[in-house]
Amino acid sequence: MDTLPKQFSSMSMSDAASRAPVRRSPRMTLPLPPDVDRNPRLQFYGVAVSEEWLRKYGEDHMILDGQKRNDLTLIFHAVNVLQRLTKIQDLAVEATSYDPVTFPDISPWDDGSVVVLAVCSTEWESYKCRPSQRKVDKLARLTGQTPKWWVDFNPPSYYM
């Protein structure tokens, strides 16, 4: 049978170019950190938050049914909610080294790291997919933190 059924006879193919383009917010203007060529460690752009803040945010945005949630569940939920509210698809939980001067109000994790909610990194694939300024501004408002570049807690050998 070489012919299409009758119900398909009125269909036509459309040219993809004739469709209206999908409007995307422009990527945020974000210069790479000045020492990116000299620093062997990956760097992340985002906001630093405490473990306590993440747990509390997760708890505040979870429907509690009388069950106690563990810390990991609350933290995962917090990141999930932030990702949904900001529409930052690649929001990642990364880590930077604790410094009491930089983080006077944040306690480090047991390994000496601090959580960074990263929107991109200095890796080219991540950097070129960075979100719009509007989305990053919303993340900053929700966390009460100013985004900046953070040096990765893990050494380069961690990724090999």
Rank of each mutant, 00 (worst) to 15 (best):
R23M: 13
T29R: 05
S9V: 05
T96C: 15
F76A: 09
L54Q: 06
F103R: 14
Y127H: 11
Y159T: 02
H61A: 11
R41L: 01
G112D: 11
E59P: 02
D137Y: 02
I88T: 09
Y45F: 15
W53D: 00
P26Y: 07
T143I: 06
I88G: 07
R27F: 02
Q89N: 06
P155W: 08
V101H: 06
F8M: 12
F153M: 08
K68M: 09
I75Y: 00
R134G: 05
Q67E: 08
S10H: 13
N70T: 09
L54H: 05
L72A: 06
A17G: 07
Y45G: 09
A92L: 00
N39A: 03
A20N: 07
R141Y: 03
S113T: 13
P155Y: 14
Q67T: 13
S157W: 04
P34W: 08
G58H: 13
L139P: 07
G144D: 06
K138Y: 07
R19Y: 13
A48T: 05
D65H: 11
R24D: 01
V101K: 14
T122F: 04
V115A: 12
P108I: 01
T122C: 10
D15Y: 14
D60S: 13
S97G: 12
Q145E: 15
V93F: 07
M62P: 01
P155V: 12
M1S: 13
G112L: 06
R38T: 13
A17N: 15
S126K: 03
V151R: 14
P131Y: 02
A140I: 08
T122M: 10
V81G: 04
G46V: 01
M62Y: 09
Q133Y: 04
M160A: 12
W109R: 14
Q43M: 15
S121H: 11
E51R: 15
S157E: 15
T143C: 11
W124E: 13
R130I: 01
Y98S: 03
D65W: 04
R41T: 01
R38P: 00
N39Y: 01
L82F: 10
D99F: 11
E123A: 13
Q89T: 00
D110M: 01
S121L: 02
D35G: 04
D90S: 02
N39D: 15
T96R: 12
V49C: 11
S10P: 00
V136Q: 02
M1F: 08
N39G: 09
V93W: 10
V36H: 14
E123M: 12
K138E: 12
N39L: 10
D65P: 00
N70M: 07
H77K: 15
R27P: 11
A16N: 01
N39V: 12
I106P: 00
F76N: 13
Y98A: 04
F103T: 09
F8G: 10
A118I: 07
D15K: 15
L64I: 10
C120A: 05
D90P: 00
E52D: 13
S50K: 04
P34L: 10
C120L: 05
D35K: 06
